[in-house]
């Protein structure tokens, strides 16, 4: 009996590690970065630890990232970013829930220009976005990238007047995601 339970658990475990539901793909290493260009300095930060789920049937797409995982060139900037601007101890995550607008045939190789629409929850403020993205499918491997502007006031992120020349009011966000190809592994 124990043995059977063990095997059942094992199967469940392997299954759980790979896919969520039928036709849902996961990426655990979403590359997210942002860039602020202001008269005094350019600021760039990046993280590779966000995750994403893509539903191939419904075209729904989901991203989640821990704000505290963003890395800066200057350690002090990273501290100020977390403490003074993002208040990441209160609002540690950013989330995006959306949909790929155009129908995509995920089984066919190619490059697709798509529009992703949805809500971004950042600094506890939800805003609707519509961004151009490029999806590329090669041998069943799905990856995507997008670049869109985020206006800090939209998310109630305040810049002190003293630092207005150091931080841009609109920050450019870049997303790069490659989904784990569970279909290929199963074959």
């Amino acid at each position: 009996m124990k043995k059977i339970l063990f095997i059942v658990n094992l199967i469940a475990f392997i299954g759980a590690g790979e896919c969520l539901a039928q036709g849902q793909l996961v990426s655990r290493n979403v590359l997210l970065s942002f860039f602020s260009s202001a008269p005094i300095e350019d600021i760039k930060a990046e993280t590779k630890t966000g995750y994403s789920i893509l539903d191939l049937q419904t075209n729904n797409i989901y991203f989640k990232v821990d704000i505290r995982s963003f890395k800066f060139r200057k350690g002090l900037m990273q501290e100020h970013f977390n403490e003074n601007y993002m208040e990441s101890d209160k609002y540690p995550y950013a989330e995006f829930k959306g949909k790929i607008k155009e129908p995509v045939d995920f089984s066919k190789d190619g490059t697709y220009d798509v529009t992703v629409i949805g809500d971004l929850l950042l600094h506890n403020v939800k805003q609707n976005y519509s961004a151009k993205a490029v999806l590329s499918i090669k041998n069943g491997n799905i990856s995507g990238s997008s670049n869109f502007p985020v206006k800090l006031v939209d998310h109630n992120i305040k810049i002190p007047t003293l630092l207005i020349k150091n931080i841009a009011e609109v920050v450019q966000v870049t997303v790069n995601v490659t989904y784990e190809n569970t279909l290929a592994k199963k074959m």
């Binding site: 759980a16 590690g17 969520l20 996961v26 630890t49 966000g50 995750y51 989640k64 821990d66 995982s69």
Partner: peptide
Amino acid sequence: TLDTLNTNLS
């Protein structure tokens, strides 16, 4: 899976 994803996230 969602639980693991969320735990790994932070």
